[in-house]
């Protein structure tokens, strides 16, 4: 197990370095945005002295490296500065939004991952049958349709025509859990439809990839029934690629949901980011980007560790 710990520690270290590099890229990207930030914030009518005052207040006159390090210093302790538009602390305005996004992502993941993996096992078991083809067509349809389109279709059928679920997913922190789940069901379902196909296809491919292995033939020659060959003999050896795809999709659930949030008017972090970009609220943009990057890195790290742990050679050294 010592091996596993040292691998995890190493990956974590690389993750931190990656995050540092990304923070630099984010800063430079924002820096490269054309135009003057003070001008953009204050509008065309601002006087020269107002502009100068704002620049001084924001520290825009400092050289870029110094501003980067000041920002980084704050970010390390969770202080991302003050929003240019609302004058509130960025951390305070992001936190509830991010919690909402995480909850929606978790909701979708709890449905999508088991469904995708079970479907993947089933289509691997019934490969090249009608069931396999239908499952293929359906999941491909859902993955190839734009999210907003899927969202509106779901609203049309589950909300407008039947009235089963609300079409607008407004939530507040004090709302009881069950009501919250009901309100966010449609956006969660939209996300499920978007991510299931990818994970299901990978589960199917990873299992089928192993079916030519000698130990699968051995299992068949021991009289093991077909479902058991898949579940007991193929699946335990195909976790590594499946886990990686699951992690990628989870990251997408956190960082790629802005369209779904807009369609269902859900107060998540994606909307906040879009607003901030249009208003040149660069502290918020930088903070959101960094959070997204950290999400990707953490989930990929988890996937790496997960796939290492599924390898019996590492869990049980000689």
């Amino acid at each position: 197990m010592l091996d596993v710990f040292s691998i995890v520690a190493k990956r974590l270290g690389f993750g931190l370095i990656t995050l540092l590099v990304i923070s630099l890229i984010i800063f430079i990207a924002v820096e490269l945005l054309p135009g003057d930030i003070a001008q953009a914030v204050l509008g065309q009518g601002a006087t020269e002295s107002n502009l100068a005052a704002l620049r001084a207040e924001l520290g825009l006159n400092d050289p870029a490296p110094m501003r980067y390090f000041n920002w980084l210093k704050g970010a390390v302790v969770g202080d991302f500065g003050v929003s240019l538009v609302s004058k509130e602390s960025v951390t305070d305005s992001i936190t509830p939004r991010f919690v909402n996004t995480l909850m929606l992502a978790l909701y979708a993941a709890v449905i999508a991952v088991p469904v995708a993996i079970s479907l993947g096992v089933l289509v691997a078991l019934f490969r090249n049958t009608l069931f396999d083809r239908i499952a293929n067509v359906l999941t491909f349809t859902s993955i190839s349709s734009p999210e907003f389109f899927l969202g509106y279709i779901l609203i049309l059928y589950f909300s407008v025509k039947t009235g089963w679920f609300p079409s607008i997913a407004t939530v507040s922190p004090e709302m009881p859990l069950f009501e919250r789940l009901e309100r966010t069901f449609l956006p969660a379902l939209t996300l499920v439809l978007v991510v299931v196909a990818h994970m299901m296809r990978m589960t199917r491919a990873a299992i089928i990839n192993l079916l030519a292995s000698p130990y699968i033939e051995m299992a068949k020659l021991k009289g093991t029934p077909a479902w058991k060959v898949i579940v007991r003999h193929a699946l335990p050896n195909s976790w590594a690629p499946i886990i990686n795809v699951v992690a990628l999709n989870l990251a997408y659930l956190v960082t790629g949901v802005v369209l779904v949030e807009v369609v269902f008017v859900y107060p998540g972090i994606g909307q906040l980011l879009v607003d901030a970009v249009s208003k040149r609220d660069f502290p918020v943009v930088q903070a959101c980007s960094l959070i997204f990057a950290a999400t990707f890195i953490l989930l990929n790290l988890a996937a790496d560790v997960g796939s290492i742990l599924t390898n019996p050679r590492l869990r049980h050294p000689k």
């Binding site: 000698p214 130990y215 050896n237």
Partner: peptide, 15 residues
């Protein structure tokens, strides 16, 4: 019953 050529490949590595 069957005994395969390569036992190393014919035992399931996960069990």
């Amino acid at each position: 019953a069957y005994v395969a050529q390569s036992a190393a490949a014919s035992f399931n590595p996960a069990h």
